[in-house]
Structures are given as C-alpha cells and as structure tokens.
Design a protein around this nucleic acid. Structure first.
Lengths: 163, 163
DNA sequence: CTCTTGTAATTAACATGTTAACAAAATGAT
DNA sequence: ATCATTTTGTTAACATGTTAATTACAAGAG
C-alpha cells in the first residue's frame, strides 16, 4: 500500500486486524433477508401504488379482509407494524374512507378496526392480481422450495423465544 | 377460542369472497422475511445502539473496513441502501468524524468514502461482539441450515433478473 | 374507595425508505 | 468544439421504522 501526501504516517494496513473484522458482508443474513424481501416486493409494489396503497397499508386492509374486526394491538402483531406507525397508517386509511375506527364498549382504551365497502372494493381489485404474481413466483421456484424457505424463516423468527 | 399458529382458520362471514381474498397472511413471504430479519437484528441492535450506531450506519462502516475506499454508488449497492438514504447517512457519519469524504480526481461527480481512525475504533469494539452473536446463531441452527437459507434467499433475490 | 401498577394507544423526535425532480459532471455523436 | 444524452449525487416530500415519553383507561392491593 502506497502512502499519499495527505495520509498519516501510521500504517493503515488492515491485515493484522482481520480477526476483528466483521463477517463478510456478502454472507450477511440481515442483508440477504433485506435483498430477498425487496426482490419479492418489487413485483407487488407497482400494482399497489396504482391504487395509492403502500405495502403496509395493504397489509392492514388485507388482515381486515380475513377477519372482520381487529383491535390495534392485534393488528400491529399480525401485520408486524410497530404501534406508532400503525397509528399513522390508521389515521391515513380512515381519512381516505378505507377503514373505520370503532370504540370497544368493554375497554375504553382499545381501538377496533373494520374495513369499509370502499376498502373491500380495493381488496377485490388488487387481490386477484396479487395472487397471480404470487403464483408466478411459486411456479418459478416450486412450491416445495417456497415452503422450505417459509419454514426456515419461521424457525429463525422464533430464535428469541428460547433464549 | 384462540387459534394456534399453524391451524387453518376460516371465519364464518366472507366465504363467498374466498376466491378473491389474498393468500393467508401467515404464509406471506414478505412478512415472513420481515419477521426473520427483525428476529436476527434484535440480537444486534442493542450492541449497535450502545455505540450510537444504526444498523444502516454499521453496514456502511463495515464495508469501509473491508475495502479501503468506496464510492457512493458502490456503497449503495453493497450496503443495499438507496441513494437518498445514503446521502443522509454519509452526512451524519462525516459530521461525527467516523468517515471522510474525498473527491475523485478522475470523475468530479463521484464521492469517495474512507473510514477514519475513529471509525476503525468503533469497528474494533463492535466486531468481536457481533461475531460472537452470529456464532451463537450459527451454532443454534447449524451452519448448513444457515447456508441453505442464504442460498435460497440469494435465489429469490435474483428472481427479477431473468424476467 | 384510593392509590399504585399495568396496558393500549398516541405523540414526539429523529433515522430511514421511497419516488420524483433536479444539478453537475461525464459521455458520445455530429 | 457543440449539443443532447447519460450518469452521479443531492434535495424535496411524504410514509414508515424506532425509541422514549405521555395520556387514558383498566385492574389489583390496601
């Protein structure tokens, strides 16, 4: 390594520190998970943005299509969205008339969520296309491989719980 | 009655629309990737925040520890950070004296990045602990399983490129 | 009943994700 | 050289991620 005029005299060779360097970035699990997620989402995003929907907003109304009434905590859990984000998403979706907020009669703290007809309309427009995209992906890789991946991801996700 | 994970639920009400509903959220690949990523990161985050480092900032200086000088485009690519985010991260890291910005003599557009001694000090503090955490994870699941997962993720990540 | 503690949701503040628009420098064709 | 085009990086604007503090209500102990 050649020293440039502006560099310090201290040797900057990093070979001696190799043992202290992090693992190679190319085999980093967090980045690999991020890349894979982005690759998958890139197929869905155009369809969602055509309906002025973000990915997270879609996750919310999708869950409300599966289950009629969901309180905010359960929604945060299922959609994997943190409470502060969910508060903003709910406000936005409600202003757009896509979901409705109800009060829980038994617990004044809880916010109950429900999809509106307008929200259902969006579901019915987006869902078929979403299914098609997913089926293309499943066909390309084979359902077994996707299942294997989902199982591995599930296993990783529960790593914390047995510490 | 509470449904356990793995059970197949089908609420009473929306049966007629079943064909138009999205896939079940619990087997959603994007959410599964998100959950897994968060599970992994939850082990690293406390250590990073102890050094006032975000995950993304850590990715940046980590790459600069592997490779002495990197321009912004290459960094965005390797750290998987979009250009606008990277601009802000670079500004922040530079203000804190952790990295330095240089100008490319051959191309006036490019920004070259280099880690400072202060940055190297952080690397040397964090890296050993980071390795230990990763080794625990690798021991728990077995290196073959991690490798299998990384291979599958890689395969998913390149799905776009053969369209 | 009062007080403490715990829980659900919101707000605040900052960092990043995401897309679009933009400025500056390089490139290539004429 | 001149001009249109492409590439690199930044800025802007809005949505979400992240942690901490806060408010409103619920539950329990005394």
């Amino acid at each position: 390594m050649k020293l440039e005029p502006g560099m310090t005299e201290r040797p900057t060779t990093k070979i001696a520190q190799d043992a202290f360097l992090p693992r190679n970035t190319r085999r980093s699990l967090p980045i690999a998970l991020l890349r894979a997620r982005e690759a998958v989402m890139s197929h869905f995003r155009p369809m969602l943005s055509a309906h002025d929907m973000t990915e997270q907003q879609w996750r919310v109304i999708r869950i409300l299509a599966e289950q009629d009434t969901v309180d905010a905590s359960e929604m945060a859990d299922k959609a994997f969205i943190l409470a502060p984000s969910l508060t903003r998403i709910i406000r936005s979706l409600e202003e757009r008339g896509i979901i409705a907020k109800l009060k829980d009669a038994n617990d004044g703290r809880r916010v109950l969520l429900k999809i509106t007809p307008a929200g259902l309309a969006i579901i019915n427009e987006v869902a078929p296309e979403s299914r098609m995209i997913y089926e293309r992906l499943e066909t390309h890789f084979g359902p077994e491989k996707i299942d294997l991946l989902l199982d591995l991801l599930d296993e990783i996700s529960t790593f914390n719980e047995d510490a």
